[in-house]
Each structure stands twice: as structure tokens, then as C-alpha cells.
Design a protein around this nucleic acid. Structure first.
Length: 510
RNA sequence: GGGUCUGUAGCUUAGUCGGUAGAGCGGCGGACUCUUAAUCCGCAGGCCAGGGGUUCGAGUCCCUUCAGGCCCGCCA
């Protein structure tokens, strides 16, 4: 066991484990009944004085600080609900238990205690321990008590350890869990039904992205991990469900950085008889409700900015945003002139762009996106970039689409859903053409989906909201790795003790 | 993919011009019955991320591999 360099067990802890075993102590008992969690001890005994309570309580948790005073100890015990101090006296414990504790129980171990509650001289609510039980012997030693664990790589790879020692991190993930519950509650209270659609898909679609591929042995067929649930959720609208959503994990085979993880979470929402204006209102309402429920207000600081989520949020067409924020009136110039302007302003890709509408998107991405700090809906996108969105009812060459930007990040993307099957066929064909020209992110032609539209999908509005980014905004974390429990990391190579050569990495069977 | 910075004990880290790797916490031993980063005395713990080179001598300089952070590009 100790020859394996991947195992981080501490020799001294192993020795204590052995000593406990020899003394007949059960290292990993099966259960412990608590009369109180730590927060309920604090609530119930908030008025207790220096004399210990008559009531004997039992509670359990992990030991943190242990302060040795010879014949007494003070120790910090923590469970999910909080921290409380233990007061442990040699003369109060059953015969032998104190020595046992002193020799073999340490920081990081999980114990159960029985005792009476009192307040110490300096006024801290504590448990006067009458008996204690080892519940789990810990073999790995904890990071130090003061600086804790700060190494980012270790925090991400060993998240359990991060959660044990960093309260901030626990709080972030508690908030993440609450946000997802709030999203669900909001939508289900509003009459939406939650569904699960395939993660393994024979065709991928619903977004422009490179997929992960896998293989199903029985079907003898290549499958893709979904890049979006969109096309399946719209099939549900065709089938007659009118308000649907899915909290979906999506997979995109792309680079990793502070705002992208290869697997990420979105909530996608579709509503029959609604359009993109309705979905903007829904998005605004859902997100601002989450903000106020979590923070109790409507302002949250993020990086160097204070973001105000006070509704209504600003709405601008992309054309207008490029004109007023980027300073370029795209439709006042021809493509040649736009190339010159774009070059001068450092807009990437202008030499390849062939239309004003393509230029618009390029100018928007370079000149506007990262300036959209306060919540802003950008509307009316060129048709070429939006193969699943319905043509604009007034503007030729545009679709009824919006994206929500906050702190320069795209948080949501929605549109009036394209439901004209022939138009959809043409859009897919245009995507196919892009694929033939080498665009790996262009969408696949999904014939079953167009057949579904052939049976008739009512006018529908849809939106996807990025959950990870929402959590970043709410918790003030500027890295997506801080809000994903187990972010994607490159595998560490295991070095064999005897030859120091890295072991060959198994590629798996796919 | 490009640039840049980082990797020293379980954790947090110091290490100057290249000259025996130092501390705090944690651990172990000892003292201590109201402490809370408890305190006091003593001890152990390091192939300085891996490999190669320069040098009498490398944690330090050079090359390279691995992993990570940050910035840019692409995607949400």
C-alpha cells in the first residue's frame, strides 16, 4: 500500500490506527445517533450560563483545532451546520477514554460526543464532554489551520479537501445548489414541466460547437455527447407540452479557460405561443428573482464592478449597440469600407467577411461584448449565425434572437424558435455547406427534427441560461472552476518508484 | 493554439552574487484543569515537480518534459 506513490496516507496516522485497533477500538462504527446538530445546540442553548445544562445532548462532526492543556483539552467540532467548541476533561470521561483521545485522536478525525452545554469564562458556548466515540479515523493529514489550503490546483483536484477546510468554498457550492433549486421552483411554479432528454445523441445539434464522440458497443454506432438539449425539447413542444425546461449538462470539446469548462450546466426553457420578447421578460424575471432571493438585494459586485440587477434591463439591437458603443454605423458603409475600418479598430476576421451582416457580428464581438457590464439584452442577430431562430418579422436578413450580457459575459441566449420546416431545411443545408467548407462547428442536418416541425410546432419562444456563469455572478467568482465542483483537469501522470518513468496512460477503449 | 508566471516538508512559505535547504503550522516527546492561530521546552520530517546540461560545486544558470495560474485567440 505504501509503495503506491498515489496514496497519501500519513505514517503516523497509520500507527495511531494500529494502536487503536490493538486497544480494541472500533475505527469505523456503523452509526451514531445525534440528538442535535451543531446549529440546533447553539439555538437551543443560546441563553445557557457557566453551569452545564441538565440535559445531555449528543452531536457529531469533524475535529478541527485541538488545544491541549494537559488534563483538559479544548477542541473545535464542525458539522455541516456550524462549529462548536468541546471541553474535554480527564476526570469527566470514562476510564481510559481520555488517554485514548490524547494519544490517538487528532485533527481531522470524525467523532461523536455526549455531554452538557455550558458557556466558558470568556462566554463561548461549548459542550462539556462526558463521553466520546471515534466515528471515523482519518489517515490523511489536513492542511494547516491558519493558512489552510490555497493551492488552486490541489483545491480543484481534491475538492473534498477544499470543502473540508475552506468555508468560502463550501458556501459557494451551497449557493450553487440553492440557485438551481430556485430556478426549478420558479419554473415549476410558473407551470413549466421539467424533462430529461438524451445526453447520448446520434446527431448533435442546438448550438455551434465541436462535440465529444463515443461509441455504443451494442448498437455498433458512434454517438455524441450532447452540445445542447434544444432539438429534443422542441420535439416536446411539437408533442403538445407547452411549457418545458431541462437543467442540462452540456459537453463541448473546446478549450478550457476562466469562463469555459468542457462540461457545463444550462437551463433551457421553451414556451409555446411565446416569442423572444416573452423569453426576455422571463429571463429577466428568473435571474433577478434568483439574485434577490440569494443576496436579499439587487446589487452584486463582480470583479471591479457593481452590477445592478434592478429591472427593467437595457435592450439594444446589435446594430444599435455597435453604433452607440462601438462607434461604427455598419450599415452606413459598404463591405470594402468596413474592412478598412475594422482593420484599423483591430477587428478580427474582417478580411474574410463578405456581407455587412457578417461584419456586424465581428464588430460586435470585438468592440461591444466586453463593455456590456450591466445586464443588457442584445437583440436581432443576422440570420447566418442563427440556424434555429425564426426570421425577424420586420427586418430582412435578421432573426428574432437575443443574448443577455452581464459583466462582459454571455449569460443567456434565446429566440423566437424557427417552426417553418422548409425554412429549417434550408438553414440546415446552409450549415451543411459550411461543414463542407471545413467549419467543424456548423450544425448537422437533423431530418427527424425537421419532420417533427413538419407535424407542426406552435409559435414558440426558447432560452438557455448558463448556470455556471450565473453562479459566478451571484457568488462573485471570476473563474468558472470556482463554481464547478470537479472542474476538468488534465490527468496527473503517476511516476513509478523504481524506474521514475511515467506509467503509460491508458487511452480507454474509445 | 500563442504569450507569460509558478512548482521547495502534510499545509503556508524563506532561500541574496551558484558555496552544507531555513521557518511557522501540523506531527512526536515533555509541562500545563477556561483555551480558541492557546502557551512554554525538546525532537523528527526534504531526490527543492521529472529528465538532461554547464560548473570543482546547482533549489538558484541553460535546455527539455509534466502540471497549474493569468492574459490573448475560439467557443457559452
Amino acid at each position: 500500500m505504501q509503495d503506491n506513490p498515489s496514496i497519501q496516507f500519513d505514517e503516523q496516522r497509520l500507527a495511531k490506527r494500529q494502536q487503536l485497533l490493538e486497544e480494541g477500538v472500533e475505527l469505523y462504527p456503523h452509526e451514531f445517533r445525534r440528538s442535535h446538530t451543531i446549529d440546533t445546540v447553539r439555538e437551543e442553548f443560546s441563553e445557557i450560563g457557566h453551569d452545564p445544562s441538565a440535559e445531555i445532548i449528543s452531536t457529531a462532526g469533524r475535529l478541527y483545532g485541538v488545544r491541549d492543556h494537559g488534563k483538559t483539552f479544548f477542541a473545535d467540532l464542525r458539522d455541516e451546520t456550524g462549529r462548536i467548541q468541546l471541553y474535554i476533561r480527564k476526570d469527566a470521561l470514562p476510564e481510559g477514554k481520555f488517554q485514548n483521545f490524547k494519544n490517538c485522536i487528532e485533527r481531522g478525525d470524525i467523532i461523536g460526543v455526549k455531554g452538557r452545554v455550558f458557556k466558558t469564562k470568556v462566554g463561548e458556548i461549548s459542550i462539556f464532554v462526558d463521553d466520546m466515540t471515534l466515528l471515523t479515523k482519518t489517515l490523511c493529514s489536513l492542511p494547516e489551520k491558519f493558512h489552510g489550503l490555497t493551492n488552486l490546483e490541489k483545491r480543484y483536484r481534491q475538492r473534498y479537501l477544499d470543502l473540508i477546510v475552506n468555508e468560502d468554498s463550501r458556501e459557494t457550492f451551497r449557493t450553487r445548489s440553492r440557485i438551481i433549486s430556485l430556478l426549478r421552483n420558479y419554473l415549476t411554479n410558473d407551470g413549466f414541466l421539467e424533462f430529461e432528454t438524451p445526453t447520448l445523441q446520434p446527431l448533435y445539434g442546438g448550438a455551434n460547437a465541436r462535440p465529444f464522440t463515443t461509441f455504443h458497443n451494442f448498437l455498433g454506432q458512434k454517438l455524441y455527447l450532447r452540445i445542447a438539449p434544444e432539438l429534443y425539447l422542441k420535439r416536446l413542444i411539437v408533442g403538445g407540452f407547452e411549457k418545458v425546461f431541462e437543467v442540462a449538462k452540456n459537453f463541448r470539446n473546446e478549450d478550457i479557460d476562466t469562463s469555459h469548462n468542457p462540461e457545463f450546466s444550462m437551463v433551457e426553457i421553451y414556451q409555446a405561443y411565446a416569442d423572444y420578447h416573452d423569453m426576455m421578460r422571463l429571463t429577466e424575471s428568473v435571474v433577478s428573482t434568483v439574485i434577490s432571493d440569494i443576496t436579499g438585494g439587487n446589487e452584486v459586485s463582480f470583479e471591479d464592478n457593481t452590477i445592478s440587477y434592478k429591472t427593467p434591463w437595457q435592450v439594444m439591437t446589435m446594430e444599435n449597440a455597435v453604433r452607440t458603443i462601438g462607434g461604427v454605423d455598419v450599415f452606413a458603409h459598404d463591405v470594402d469600407a468596413l474592412r478598412i475600418i475594422g482593420e484599423k479598430l483591430g477587428v478580427e476576421g474582417v478580411l474574410d467577411a463578405r456581407s455587412q451582416r457578417e461584419m456586424l457580428v465581428l464588430f460586435f464581438e470585438t468592440l461591444v461584448e466586453d463593455k456590456l457590464i450591466q445586464p443588457t439584452f442584445i437583440t436581432d442577430f443576422p440570420v447566418e449565425n442563427s440556424p434555429l431562430a425564426k426570421s425577424h418579422r420586420e427586418k430582412e436578413g435578421f432573426v428574432e434572437r437575443f443574448e443577455l450580457f452581464i459583466a462582459g459575459m454571455e449569460l443567456a441566449n434565446g429566440f423566437s424558435e424557427l417552426n417553418d420546416p422548409l425554412d429549417q431545411v434550408q438553414r440546415f443545408e446552409a450549415q451543411e455547406e459550411k461543414r463542407r467548407l471545413g467549419d467543424e462547428e456548423a450544425q448537422m442536418h437533423d431530418y427527424d427534427f425537421v419532420n417533427a416541425l413538419g407535424y407542426g410546432m406552435p409559435p414558440t419562444g426558447g432560452v438557455g441560461i448558463g448556470i455556471d456563469r450565473l453562479v459566478m455572478l451571484v457568488t462573485g467568482n471570476s473563474s468558472i472552476k470556482e463554481v464547478i465542483l470537479f472542474p476538468s483537469m488534465r490527468r496527473e501522470q503517476v511516476v513509478q518508484e523504481n524506474d521514475k518513468e511515467p506509467l503509460p496512460l491508458d487511452d480507454g477503449n474509445v
